Simulated assay, not measured.
Amino acid sequence: MDKNFPTIKTDRLLLREITNFDLENIFNGLSNPKVIEHYGISFDSLNATKQQMIWYKNEKQMWWAICSLNNQVFYGAGGLNNIDCKVKKAEIGLWLLPEFWGKGIMKETLPLISDYGLNQLKLNRVEGFVETENINCKRAMSKLDFQLERTMIDCEIKNRKLISLDVYVKTI
């Protein structure tokens, strides 16, 4: 573990560094059809998931394991991608295991991560790219003070189909 990696706590959540001990939990999430329906990455084996673990360690990413306060239950992962200190922006991402959907974890976690980026990393902008058809995530972003900035029409291919992305932004 990196002694300098920030741990964030609330009354019920612990956000801590992702470690190799989380490999199975990460695989369980990123191989689950419900999780990956609107997520850009999926894995079909524990071995393949090791690539994601390497990605989490990249200096342009800062991702936390989202756990119960006692660190006994793994809920999901969230963090900042493509951190660009020159331009002072990053992309926010988060996924939860389906059994923890609708329990307010996303609502509690996203502000912690975006506030960390804006206040601790001194970013000017945190962006969230949401598939236009992901109504639940779009609703959550709006409730959490992210502003819809634009829609990028047919900008990516997923499952051999063009998809559009809505860009939500939170600034200082």
Rank of each mutant, 00 (worst) to 15 (best):
G79Q: 05
T49K: 08
Q51F: 10
I105N: 01
E108D: 10
E59H: 14
C67S: 12
F74M: 06
G78Q: 02
W55G: 01
L97Y: 06
G76S: 00
W95C: 03
G102I: 03
G79S: 07
G93S: 06
W63V: 12
G104S: 07
E99L: 06
N58M: 13
P98L: 05
I41Y: 12
A90G: 04
I83W: 05
L46C: 09
N71G: 09
G102A: 03
K57Y: 08
L69A: 11
F74T: 07
K60R: 14
W63T: 10
S45N: 03
S68C: 06
W95F: 13
L97R: 08
N47R: 11
N82K: 12
G40C: 01
C85Y: 14
S42C: 10
N58C: 11
Y56K: 05
E91V: 13
I66W: 00
Q72M: 08
P98Q: 05
K60A: 12
T109Q: 02
I105T: 04
E108Q: 10
Y56V: 11
G79D: 06
N58R: 13
D84W: 03
E99D: 12
G102Q: 03
N71P: 04
F100I: 06
I54K: 14
I54C: 06
I66M: 05
Y56C: 10
K57V: 03
S42E: 13
T109D: 00
N71R: 12
L80P: 01
I41W: 13
L110S: 12
Y75R: 01
L46A: 09
C85Q: 15
V87Q: 14
E99Y: 03
D44M: 11
Q52S: 09
G102F: 05
G104V: 09
N71Q: 13
G104P: 05
W63Y: 15
A48E: 15
W64G: 00
I83Q: 01
W55H: 11
L110R: 03
W63D: 09
W95H: 06
N82P: 03
L46T: 09
I66K: 02
L94G: 01
W95K: 00
K103E: 10
Q51I: 08
K107Q: 15
C85I: 15
L46S: 10
N58Y: 10
F74H: 11
E99C: 04
W101A: 00
G76F: 00
A65M: 02
K57G: 09
Q51N: 15
V73H: 00
E99G: 05
S45G: 02
S42T: 08
D44G: 14
Q52V: 04
F43H: 09
E91H: 13
S45Q: 03
K86E: 15
F100T: 04
I105Q: 02
N71Y: 07
V73I: 15
A65H: 05
N70R: 06
G93M: 03
I66N: 02
K50Y: 02
